[in-house]
């Protein structure tokens, strides 16, 4: 049994079958990549996992519990964190505050009226956040306004915000989309670093084969809403079905 079990998921948007009978199993402490050409249904699948969309049929089990019908914040509280295609951070806040928010969310749940406590007195939370920031080499930027940082730093910060929650599963939605080669390599290094430092389960949706082959333990190839193959990176590389899906039949 994997930590995430997707069984027989279908999703239609009007006449378009976005997902057709998707089965997927992500094992604990592995990096599972989901690849596929444009319109293969990668993002739809991801949105079904985090509660943004509800599949028409099928089941999505996480850690033994169904996620279907739960709101995104409830699913996060179950242990799924998500990194977005463009870094989603709290731009008006400082770097440290950005990391403190998930610390509070982890401790206090989805809502708590802690209006008469003082942030400066939350030594334990601040220490936790600072340790995380040191981990991603951002401790010296803790008082910076996060919107004024470079995109690479924002990505780093977003990653720190997700990791500080100690998620059981980290979802990454095209973490290198639109990045220059150098930035992509930095992101790969960051992810490798994270993987080396802790036990973590990641599911990456990615376009860039370079990223996928440097990180993934398992790869699922989606095409037209249906998984074609699931295998190790070595076997996927030369797989005829994959070449066909990506390059067209003539190739």
């Amino acid at each position: 049994m994997g930590i995430l079990e997707v069984k027989g998921v279908n999703k239609r948007f009007g006449g378009l079958q976005a997902l057709g009978d998707v089965n997927l199993s992500v094992q604990e402490n592995t990096v599972h990549a989901i690849i596929g050409p444009n319109g293969a249904g990668k993002s739809t699948l991801l949105n079904c996992l985090v509660g943004k969309l509800i599949p028409d049929t099928g089941s999505v089990m996480f850690d033994g519990q169904s996620v279907l019908g739960r709101k995104p914040h409830e699913i996060n509280q179950m242990g799924i964190s998500r990194v977005f295609q463009t870094p989603e951070i709290f731009g008006d806040l400082t770097v440290l505050e950005n990391v403190l928010i998930p610390c509070f969310a982890r401790r206090d749940g989805a809502f708590r009226m802690h209006a008469f406590e003082t942030v400066a007195n939350e030594a334990e939370m601040i220490e936790k956040a600072m340790t995380m920031l040191e981990d991603v080499n951002m401790a010296d930027k803790r008082h910076m306004h996060s919107a004024s940082m470079s995109r690479g730093d924002k990505r780093r910060l977003e990653m720190a915000m997700c990791l500080v929650q100690e998620p059981k599963l980290l979802l990454l939605d095209e973490p290198t989309a639109g990045m220059a080669r150098a930035d992509t390599n930095n992101t790969i290094d960051l992810l490798k670093e994270i993987k080396a430092k802790r036990d973590i389960t990641m599911a990456i949706i990615e376009h860039d084969m370079h990223v996928v082959f440097s990180l993934a333990d398992r790869i699922t190839v989606l095409a037209q809403g249906t998984p074609l193959v699931e295998d190790t990176p070595e076997n996927i590389k030369g797989h005829p079905k994959v070449r066909e899906a990506y390059l067209g039949e003539s190739a």
């Binding site: 709290f90 008006d92 806040l93 969310a105």
Partner: peptide, 19 residues
């Protein structure tokens, strides 16, 4: 801080487990 987070990015807030 949570109130300022609401102003800053509600999407991130939801995906950080906050309502």
């Amino acid at each position: 801080i949570m109130l300022r987070a609401v102003k800053s990015n509600q999407q991130r807030m939801t995906y950080t487990g906050l309502n």
